[in-house]
C-alpha cells in the first residue's frame, strides 16, 4: 500500500502582523528576514500518514512530494527524518502556474511513481490560503476527493476517514484511491523527529524531477483568477486597558465599561 503526502514550503505563518510587510512592486510579502517552514496542515497530513502506517503494522509506503525551489528540499528532509520512505522533489517555481496546471504537473509526477492508494495534502497552504490543489489534483488524477479529514482508520475494504464539518464529524468509508485534504485536530499534530533520524536523513537520495520535463497533460485553455492588488489591513486602535487594585476591581471596572458601551 502506498500513500503520497504533499508538502509545501511556506513563509512562516506565525510571523506577527507587526513584523509582516509587503513588497509593493512584486505584490508579495517582503521576505528578507523571514523564515520558511512546512505548511501547517501538510504537517497534519504527514502525521496522518505516519499514524496509518502504524495502524497497518508498517504496511504502508509513504512518499513525500513537493514542488518548489531547491531550498524546498528542507521540508523533504524533514519528512525523511520522520521516516517517510521516499521523497520526490519537483524542482521549479510554482509562481505563475495556474492552479489547474500545477495540479496537472503534480499529477504527471505522481504517474511516474508506484500507483498510490491515498494522496494526502493540506486543506490549504498557509501562505496564499487557496485551498484549491487537493480538489484539482483529484480531478487531474480522475479519483474522488474528500476534504477536511482529521483521522484515518483501516476498515473493511479500505479506510474510514473522519471528516470535520461545521456541526461535528462525519465518517466516510473510502474504497479506492482518493485525494484527502487534511485539517487539524488534537490527534494529528506532527510529531518531532529523533536526532539520529535527522542525521540519517541528510544523506538520503531524493527523486528529482524538473518542472519543465513534466508536461502537463491536456486541459485546454482555462480561465484564471488574477491578483489586482495586495494590501495590509487597516490598523486597529489599541485596547483600553481596564486597570484597578486587584482582580475584583479590575473586573468590576470592566463590567461597568461594557455596560456603558452597551455590550451587555
Amino acid at each position: 500500500m502506498h500513500a503520497i503526502v504533499l508538502l509545501k514550503r511556506v513563509l512562516d505563518p506565525e510571523i506577527p502582523q507587526t513584523a509582516f510587510s509587503l513588497d509593493p512592486e512584486r505584490q508579495e510579502p517582503a521576505v528578507l528576514r523571514h523564515p520558511f517552514v512546512l505548511s501547517v496542515f501538510d504537517g497534519n497530513a504527514l502525521e496522518l500518514g505516519l499514524k496509518l502506517r502504524e495502524a497497518r503494522a508498517g504496511d504502508l509506503r509513504i512518499t513525500a512530494l513537493t514542488l518548489g525551489p531547491r531550498a524546498a528540499e528542507d521540508i523533504l528532509r524533514k519528512a525523511l527524518a520522520l521516516l517517510a520512505d521516499a521523497a520526490v522533489h519537483i524542482v521549479g517555481e510554482e509562481d505563475g502556474l495556474a492552479p489547474g496546471v500545477k495540479a496537472r504537473v503534480i499529477a504527471a509526477a505522481i504517474r511516474r511513481l508506484p500507483a498510490p492508494d491515498l494522496i494526502l495534502c493540506g486543506r490549504q497552504a498557509a501562505d496564499w490560503e487557496a485551498g484549491q490543489l487537493g480538489g484539482m489534483l483529484a480531478e487531474a488524477l480522475a479519483v474522488p476527493c474528500l476534504p477536511f479529514v482529521s483521522e484515518l482508520r483501516p476498515a473493511a475494504g479500505g479506510f474510514d476517514a473522519v471528516q470535520q464539518v461545521e456541526s461535528g464529524q462525519v465518517v466516510h468509508r473510502i474504497a479506492g484511491p482518493a485525494v484527502l485534504t487534511v485539517t487539524n485536530d488534537q490527534g494529528n499534530v506532527l510529531r518531532a523527529a529523533r536526532i539520529k533520524d535527522v542525521m540519517a536523513s541528510r544523506g538520503r537520495e531524493l527523486i528529482v524531477f524538473h518542472l519543465r520535463e513534466l508536461v502537463p497533460g491536456a486541459g485546454g485553455a482555462e480561465a484564471r483568477a488574477e491578483m489586482l492588488s495586495l494590501r495590509l489591513p487597516a490598523p486597529r486602535l489599541r485596547a483600553e486597558i481596564v486597570d484597578g487594585e486587584g482582580p475584583a476591581e479590575k473586573t468590576q471596572g470592566l463590567v461597568r465599561r461594557l455596560r456603558e458601551v452597551g455590550a451587555f
Binding site: 492552479p99 489547474g100 495540479a103 486543506r123 490549504q124 490560503e129 487557496a130 485551498g131 484549491q132 490543489l133 487537493g134 480538489g135 484539482m136 483529484a138 480531478e139 487531474a140 476527493c145 474528500l146 476534504p147 477536511f148 471528516q163 470535520q164 464539518v165 461545521e166 486541459g219 485546454g220 485553455a221 482555462e222 480561465a223 484564471r224 483568477a225
Partner: peptide, 23 residues
C-alpha cells in the same frame, strides 16, 4: 466557503475550465 462548498469549488472550476477565487 464551508465544508461542502470548499470541496466542490476547485473540482467544479477544474471541470468547467473556470477561474477560481476561494475564501
Amino acid at each position: 466557503a464551508d465544508s461542502l462548498g470548499r470541496d466542490w469549488a476547485p473540482r467544479l472550476a477544474y471541470r468547467l475550465g473556470a477561474g477560481l477565487v476561494t475564501e
